[in-house]
Simulated assay, not measured.
Amino acid sequence: MLRLEGVSAGYGRAQVLREVSFVATAGEILCLTGRNGAGKTTTVKSIMGLLPLMAGQVTWQGAVLSDLPPHEVPRAGIGYVPQGRRLFGEMTVAENLEVGRLTNGKDARVLEEVLTLFPRLNERYRQRAKTLSGGEQQMLAMGRAMCLRPKVLLLDEPTEGLQPSMITSIRDATEQMRDKGVAVVLVEQRLDAITELGDQVVLLENGRMRGVLTRAEVASEPTKLARHLGV
């Protein structure tokens, strides 16, 4: 389990998160949701060690992730697809995926699995990343993270701004990762995505937790989630 216990974090002296606690379980999708500025991206950056914690800790399988330098967090089995994708634009699809494989010892099978999941990447294999469409770039960002063979996968609004067919592909891939036993933390604001994918839903507002809903509670009280998102 990925566990956050009383995590507080921010940027410099500006505190954003205040005592956030939740557990992401293997084989489940945890949706982290709230309006803009709620602290969703700050939360996943804190998990990855990209922001120092002001209080609390992040643990995974008994190891304290928040004690590790950021470059060691992926080696612990944590994959991350940030907003903006952060691809190497001048590098090809193949080279970007190769970067992902460096962490897991260049497992040959994982590359085949990624290209099977995202056939479009196979078609664009020798193409530079910056020339791909937005949806293709998102597939590549996810594929690169999946090359780590992560046990935990953090996705920060992966379908933002994509056309419907690409959204479907990204959601299908997210569900497949869950079905393989990965603990998925999905930052999401789209109501349909949350209700379709979320096994549990963490509600954030102004850096504080306002509740955790199960899939059953989301189904029985859809207006509660809608009000939280301002829909």
Rank of each mutant, 00 (worst) to 15 (best):
G198C: 02
A76Q: 10
A216N: 07
E98M: 13
Y125K: 03
A24I: 01
I170Q: 03
Q138A: 14
Q137F: 15
K45L: 08
I47E: 08
A14T: 13
R18Y: 07
K40F: 00
G207Q: 00
R13N: 14
N206H: 13
I170C: 01
R3C: 14
G27M: 10
M142L: 05
V20L: 02
N206S: 14
E112L: 14
T214L: 04
V202E: 01
N104D: 02
T25W: 13
L50A: 08
A108K: 11
S165W: 01
R85A: 12
L17M: 10
E221L: 11
Q15M: 13
I78V: 14
R3P: 06
P69F: 08
G181M: 11
A55Y: 03
R227L: 11
S133V: 13
V110R: 14
S133P: 12
T59A: 12
T168A: 11
K106H: 15
L213W: 12
T25P: 10
V187R: 01
R13Q: 15
S21Y: 02
V201P: 02
G27H: 07
R178H: 07
A9E: 08
L51V: 09
R101I: 08
R208T: 10
G10Y: 11
R190G: 07
G77R: 01
G6V: 01
M146V: 12
V93C: 09
P74K: 00
I78P: 05
Q137W: 15
H71D: 15
L197Q: 05
V44R: 04
E136T: 06
V58T: 04
T25E: 15
G77Q: 03
A145R: 05
L229S: 02
M177A: 11
L191S: 03
H228W: 12
A226M: 14
Q163I: 13
P70Y: 04
T103R: 05
G39R: 04
T59K: 08
D156M: 09
R149W: 03
D192P: 01
E90W: 10
P158K: 07
N122F: 09
V64T: 13
E98Y: 13
E136P: 04
P150V: 03
N104Q: 01
